[in-house]
Design a binder for these strands. Sequence first.
DNA 1: AATGAATGAGCCTTCATTCAT
DNA 2: GATGAATGAAGGCTCATTCAT
Lengths: 234, 234, 234, 234
Amino acid sequence: MTENTPLTESPDSSAAGKTTPRWQRRPDARPEEILRAAMQTFVERGFAATKLEEVAARAGVSKGTLYLYFSNKEELFRSAVQESILPHIQSGEQRIAGFQGSPLVLLREAYERWAAVVTDPLMGGLCKLVVTEAANFPEVAVFYFEQVIKRTRALFASILQRCMAAGEIRDLPIDLAVREITAPILFAVMWRQSMSQHDDKPLDVPAYLDFHFNTLLQGWRTDIKPDSHTGPQK
Amino acid sequence: MTENTPLTESPDSSAAGKTTPRWQRRPDARPEEILRAAMQTFVERGFAATKLEEVAARAGVSKGTLYLYFSNKEELFRSAVQESILPHIQSGEQRIAGFQGSPLVLLREAYERWAAVVTDPLMGGLCKLVVTEAANFPEVAVFYFEQVIKRTRALFASILQRCMAAGEIRDLPIDLAVREITAPILFAVMWRQSMSQHDDKPLDVPAYLDFHFNTLLQGWRTDIKPDSHTGPQK
Amino acid sequence: MTENTPLTESPDSSAAGKTTPRWQRRPDARPEEILRAAMQTFVERGFAATKLEEVAARAGVSKGTLYLYFSNKEELFRSAVQESILPHIQSGEQRIAGFQGSPLVLLREAYERWAAVVTDPLMGGLCKLVVTEAANFPEVAVFYFEQVIKRTRALFASILQRCMAAGEIRDLPIDLAVREITAPILFAVMWRQSMSQHDDKPLDVPAYLDFHFNTLLQGWRTDIKPDSHTGPQK
Amino acid sequence: MTENTPLTESPDSSAAGKTTPRWQRRPDARPEEILRAAMQTFVERGFAATKLEEVAARAGVSKGTLYLYFSNKEELFRSAVQESILPHIQSGEQRIAGFQGSPLVLLREAYERWAAVVTDPLMGGLCKLVVTEAANFPEVAVFYFEQVIKRTRALFASILQRCMAAGEIRDLPIDLAVREITAPILFAVMWRQSMSQHDDKPLDVPAYLDFHFNTLLQGWRTDIKPDSHTGPQK
DNA sequence: AATGAATGAGCCTTCATTCAT
DNA sequence: GATGAATGAAGGCTCATTCAT
């Protein structure tokens, strides 16, 4: 990609007959300002309500300039989403494989590093955006699911399994437990995107991260019989 | 046409071969049907991407008919949101006041009744919609926040306080604990709206509701010192 | 209408192959309220800006009722115009033929009778309406021109000619003189329709009618050389 | 494209067979062209019946271009009217103040200069349009009345007063006399807008202007007793 | 490369017209 | 006959996209 990527936009100038890749990378010169501005605006307004004029204004360029780097609004949307997803993907999956210490410490570290990523305002916006536009852009939803959700789930699932194998937490249904870890945080960061300005008690995110993790740890310890007080009444 | 035109809505229920009347006069049921169709479409597409033609088609009426009941797209949106919010509001706040039994049982009951409401697909859609359009319709966000969020928070806060007063759960920061109860469920129902179709492990909602509640109960019991294994490392 | 006027709207139910007359008369039962209401509204708003709902409301009937008497908006327009034109047409042309007295008296009488007709507010509106919609309804313009303008011109032309033949007024270009008689009055009645409410010096119509006629008589007397003071300077 | 693209607007003046550019960048001339086209169309059809598509076509631009210069149809209407009114306003009021010669000559000059302005086809259209749309756009009517009618009346009123003071014409009710001067001309120019094409005796405007002025002069001279032949008979 | 004037397809909205009641 | 709920074609307006500069 570095040597001779032509800047031409014509999709047929590459290998004729080949299908143009959907997630085509553009020249490095592509201004990050545009992607950032686009992401912000898409998050705030949604895809349909976003005017390219506003994106351009926020990026400090003219409307026409957007088309020098993106062939249309949809591609700009996909690129912005994809670009935002990348940091998610490079989260440290690999370092878990060889880790030797206590699984609970590993869990905490994975949790905190993941939380640090999704706590970034951009990531809350990304999550909101994917949820919001999933019906209109199923391929974006699929991409996000495959690249982010599945990996995150697999990461926490493997750590949880280690914890259970080591007897540090009791046996849990893995799928539910993984969601239990991530769901409240994801909701919080999405919430911040939309409702925080109307919230008279805005969330103290770091405190909540800590509170949440402790709740889980306490709830999942091995030395306690689950469900001793009240049972499902249905 | 005069003798036996049934008032049924099904166009094929009349005698086959007869000309189906182009429309029926149904002044009373119209608004609900329209609101339902509108809500569905707004949830799926968002406000801007929703075409009134599609709403009309789903409601089984023509475009113009919408304007007999709603003066424009925005009012239709607001009405649809408001109409969907109502069931939320009438959740049983009052019965908590005079309740005499164990606070934990009360907590479980409130949780389950609340969960039953938000688990309805429409409610997941409503939540997603409010989050999606909060920036474009701040007054809708405020209305939702005041009428739904605040009441729900207050409801669970008062129950939690009773639980803590009764020594059934340890002292918790109320605001965080309330969120801890609701956030995962809200995330789950929103998720179902958008990503469940791409999810290879779709969520078993009732099981998750139960799992979540038990996690909380175990985590919040009084007989355990919190945070004994790992502490915040920052 | 009582005996056998079919109320059917189908134009082919009359003599087949005959062309349906453009200015077809409808049953006498046709409510005058509708025509009056239509005329008023058309005058105020013009054809395109007139809503049949407003016409119906003014006439005290429902929208659908209009279509029992007029097949569409254009026909209602044409009928209203035509109905208003009729009083114009029956002005006393015939009595001029046999008149024996002084031509000047005849002129004054014709002037006053004509003025009495056009001074009616409805007639001012009609004139305004024809001028307004002439481009959109050329056949209405032609009808008005043939039935009203030409007859009025012919009437005054013949009287003026008698006056000149009798030596009561000097020789004038007939076409210009006829316009000189009618134009100011027509302008005044049109003006009243539109601008009088904003006019801080509303016109005293009877006084103006008299003033105008006297100006003409003085200006057209035989004993004076025309144009003695100032000539055309171009 | 670089070598010999002439800047001329005529699309056929370029080399035949070359592709004509789809549009030219003409930011300065656009508004006038649009206003001219709009004025024409509004005069012909009235406000409501005017389609912006037709205005755009006449102006040689697309629908969307209109919105680069005018925020909506109403503003286009108001701008077109206002722009057309300007020439009216700048009529030479000031030169009358210091004029020294015969008041009658001054009257004739004012009359001819004013007639030259209103005789322009655009002005006839303007007058027709204001009369037509006064009910729908009262503020336009007020503006026209204040800026045009009042000034014109004041102009002729002051001259007439000089004439009467100088004994050149007899004492007249000023308001009526002013209308007597202007009304026939205004009617004629409005008439031309709508009915002239159906008129078998189209008006010779210069001849009529002259005829009208002479009629007035003869009718208003001082040496004649008014109303000697016939009196009001009512 | 960058700009922004110009374009026109598409959608919201109105209202003449129809037709079940 | 009369009504007015329902219809859908038409037109105002927006905004993604193009392209002359």
